[in-house]
């Protein structure tokens, strides 16, 4: 089956910033993304867990976008403007998709 090259951008960001990030992505024309809950982890600020938490503070979410390679720079600029001062990780990997017209 024929596949097409694409970029998979994964942004792990603090819970309270989720809505700001997705709005920035939409502003940059990225309307397709998936938000995943993150159970816990550890980083420069120490370890954390979502268990028993009632506030978004102290937790992270993962926002995943798959886009055509030529749209990557616009997405990263929009994402960086939100992520810059906050705890988080932005990573880009190559991937392949089946239906290119959807991205």
């Amino acid at each position: 089956m024929k596949t097409h090259e694409a970029k998979r951008v994964e942004i792990i960001i603090e819970g309270p910033m989720e809505r700001r990030l997705t709005r920035a992505l939409e502003g940059a024309g990225v309307t397709g993304y998936t938000v995943l809950p993150v159970r816990g982890g550890s980083g420069r600020s120490g370890s954390w867990s979502r268990a028993g938490q009632v506030s978004p503070t102290g937790g992270m979410v993962a926002v995943i976008c798959i886009i055509r390679p030529e749209r990557l720079d616009g997405l990263l600029e929009a994402a960086f403007a939100v992520v810059e001062r906050h705890i988080g990780v932005v990573s880009v990997t190559d991937c392949e998709v089946l239906r290119a017209e959807r991205f």
Partner: peptide, 22 residues
């Protein structure tokens, strides 16, 4: 506070250390 204010601080003052205020 440990719900409303921490969330607002993470947005407005991200450089402040949550390990201290929480």
């Amino acid at each position: 506070s440990y719900i409303a204010v921490p969330a607002a601080m993470r947005v407005a003052l991200p450089e402040a250390r949550p390990s201290i205020y929480l």
